[in-house]
Design a protein around this nucleic acid. Structure first.
Ligand SMILES: [Mn+2]
Ligand SMILES: [Mn+2]
Ligand SMILES: [Zn+2]
Ligand SMILES: [Zn+2]
Lengths: 129, 129
DNA sequence: AATTAAACGCAACAAAGTTGCATTTAAGAA
DNA sequence: TTCTTAAATGCAACTTTGTTGCGTTTAATT
């Protein structure tokens, strides 16, 4: 694996994502980070954190990209598959990892799975009241 | 429901999507259509066809948006839920609807589902050879 | 044929993401 | 500690993707 360095910006952005109860977009991260580093740097840090498997990328049906921390045990698996469901509320727009909801499905023969992206959109319990 | 008209451009684009074995992006559609109409018009037609439920939108883990024809029986349901899996090959980049693969999952109480987007990426049978 | 709102083209804009390159800096070696 | 070097950053420029406003065209109904 290629060498990776622990920089201030990387640590700060990881903290933001780890402490958030909901998935964050690039724009939200930039704002939360008080513009402490360049937009481009954030893109690159997000790519690195994703490659290191400490955060994962979520793409909603509307096309917006968000990031959330991984909650699997460290180094438990070489390359974790994020097969849990992400819920995207159409009202509050928040995206949450439903870590306990893991869909079961069976692909036809000879398909090799590397990554899954399960996103469900609708209305979350808070907005349903 | 709002009035919708059958224009030449709309019919042409629907044909392209219907006759394609794989899901198509906006850019691919524009090229296949020989630039016969404006980019903006294509965006609007895709929105209309999606609203009419004759095509559906697929967002891949890499963030690219594609469209595929719906294969459910016409008017079978008021608002069809596209709960089948889409496979995105990392080698050939093609996105295919696996109509027969419908994951089962159970959300916690009080979540209302309106739409799902299940995308699996990896290596397709053709590229695995 | 007349009417009318849907659809269109075009220009301008906005958001999201990428690339190249000079400069800075984390981290291991001396 | 200092030296070394490739990783990481900032900045500018650019591309790709999608949106909006508005005047004109056109499908569909009367
Ligand atoms: Mn995870
Ligand atoms: Mn369908
Ligand atoms: Zn909500
Ligand atoms: Zn393939």
């Amino acid at each position: 694996m290629k060498n990776t360095r622990n920089t201030i910006a990387k640590a700060a952005i990881f903290e933001l994502i780890k402490n958030s109860k909901v998935a964050l977009s690039h724009a939200e991260i930039q704002e939360l980070n008080q513009e402490a580093c360049d937009r481009v740097t954030i893109y690159r840090i997000l790519d690195r954190l994703t490659a290191e498997d400490v955060i994962h990328k979520i793409v909603t049906p509307s096309g917006t990209v968000k990031y959330a921390a991984c909650h699997h045990a460290d180094h438990e698996e070489q390359h974790h598959v994020h097969n849990h469901v992400h819920f995207n509320c159409e009202v509050c727009q928040l995206v949450t990892c439903l870590e306990n909801v893991e869909p079961t499905f069976k692909l036809p023969a000879n398909y090799k799975v590397n990554q899954v992206n399960f996103t469900v959109s609708g209305i979350c319990p808070s907005c349903a009241l």
